[in-house]
C-alpha cells in the first residue's frame, strides 16, 4: 500500500484516475447495499439508536430518572402526554430509561466484540493456516468444547462464579462469543490457504507472517465485518437476558432486560412497563440484523453484471 501511495505522489494523473475509481466503487457499494430496502431501514434505525444513546441526557424528557430517582405519586402511570411510554413502579419515565439503557447495551456490545473478535479471529486464522497440524487440532478442539456448552449456560456460570455486574457480564459473553469467530475465520482461512496466490507466495519463499497477515487475512475481513454487524444485536439480546435474571447491569442503572423483568411483576395491569422495553430490544436486534445483511450484500462482489 505504501509504495502505491508514493507512486501516486509521483504521477498526478494516476491520482485522479484512482479517486474517480474509488468514487465509482463507493457508488457501486451503496447500490449493492441499498438494493434491499430493509438494509436502508436498518441503517436508519441503527443511526437513530446510536444518536439517541449518545445524546441521551439532552434528548430525554427526564434525564434524572435514569438513576435512583423515586416519585411514588406517579408510579405505574399509564402512557400520557407527560410520560409517553408511562412510568415504572418507582415513578420513573420509561422512555428516558429505555434511551439510557441503550448506552449500556451498546457499550457492552462494542466491548464484547472488541475482545471476542480479535481473539477468535487470530486463533481461527492460525488454525486455518496450519490446517492439518497438531496446533490446528488443539485450537479447534478447544473451540469445539466451548461451542458444545450451551452459550447462555456458560455465561450464567461465569457470572455466578464472578459477581453480577456489567463488567462481569461482558466477560461472560466474551467467553462464549469468541469461538464463533474462530470457527468462521477457520473456515475462510483454510479455504483461502489453498488459493494459488498463497501457494505461490510459499513457493517463492515468503515468510509465514507475511502469508498469514498480508496474503490470507485481507481476504477474510468481509465476512467478519458482516458477522460483527449482525452480532451487535445478538450480544445486546444476551446482555438483556443476563440482566433479566439479575446478572447484568445492577440497579439503579437502567437496562432493558432488568426493566422487562421488573415490569413483568406488574403484568398485565401496567403492561407498558414490560412491553415498551421488550419492543426496544426487538428494534435494536432488527436494526442491526438488517444493517448486517446490507453490509453482507455490499461486501459480496459476486453478483452478476447484469442485474
Amino acid at each position: 500500500m505504501d509504495s502505491a501511495k508514493e507512486g501516486l505522489k509521483a504521477d498526478r494523473p494516476e491520482k485522479r484516475w484512482l479517486s474517480a475509481r474509488r468514487a465509482e466503487e463507493l457508488e457501486k457499494a451503496w447500490r449493492r447495499f441499498s438494493r434491499n430496502r430493509l438494509s436502508v431501514m436498518g441503517l436508519i434505525l441503527v443511526t437513530l439508536i446510536l444518536l439517541l444513546a449518545w445524546l441521551a441526557p439532552y434528548v430525554t424528557p427526564y434525564p434524572a430518572h435514569a438513576g435512583a430517582f423515586t416519585d411514588f405519586v406517579n408510579s405505574c402511570a399509564a402512557p400520557s402526554a407527560e410520560h409517553w411510554l408511562g412510568t415504572d413502579n418507582m415513578g420513573r419515565d420509561i422512555l428516558t430509561r429505555i434511551v439510557f439503557s441503550f448506552r449500556g447495551a451498546l457499550y457492552m456490545a462494542v466491548l464484547v466484540l472488541a475482545a471476542a473478535v480479535p481473539v477468535g479471529c487470530s486463533l481461527g486464522l492460525l488454525a486455518g493456516y496450519l490446517r492439518g497440524t497438531w496446533l490446528d487440532t488443539l485450537i479447534m478442539r478447544v473451540t469445539d468444547v466451548f461451542l458444545s456448552v450451551p452459550a447462555l449456560l456458560l455465561a450464567l456460570a461465569v457470572v455466578s462464579i464472578l459477581e453480577p455486574g456489567l463488567t462481569n457480564a461482558m466477560i461472560a459473553v466474551t467467553v462464549m462469543w469468541w469461538p464463533w469467530y474462530a470457527r468462521l475465520m477457520y473456515g475462510i482461512a483454510s479455504s483461502c490457504r489453498n488459493e494459488y496466490y498463497v501457494i505461490h507466495a510459499e513457493l517463492i519463499g515468503a515468510s509465514k507472517p507475511h502469508i498469514i497477515f498480508r496474503q490470507i487475512l485481507p481476504n477474510c475481513v468481509s465476512p467478519i465485518f458482516t458477522k460483527m454487524a449482525l452480532d451487535v444485536g445478538w450480544v445486546i439480546l444476551i446482555g438483556a437476558t443476563l440482566s433479566y435474571v439479575g446478572l447484568g447491569e445492577q440497579p439503579p442503572t437502567p437496562s432493558l432486560g432488568q426493566m422487562v423483568s421488573d415490569g413483568s411483576r406488574y403484568m398485565p395491569d401496567a403492561w407498558w412497563m414490560t412491553i415498551f422495553p421488550s419492543f426496544a430490544i426487538v428494534l435494536i436486534i432488527l436494526g442491526f440484523n438488517f444493517l448486517g445483511d446490507g453490509i453482507g450484500d455490499m461486501l459480496s462482489k459476486g453478483d452478476s453484471k447484469y442485474e
Partner: peptide, 27 residues
Amino acid sequence: KKSIQIVFQDPGSSLNPQHTIQQILEL
C-alpha cells in the same frame, strides 16, 4: 526458489484479489 518459478493455470486465483499489481510484483 529464485531459480524455479511457476505460472498457474487460473490467473484469477493466482493473484491476490486484495493486492495491487505493484504489490504482487514486488513480493
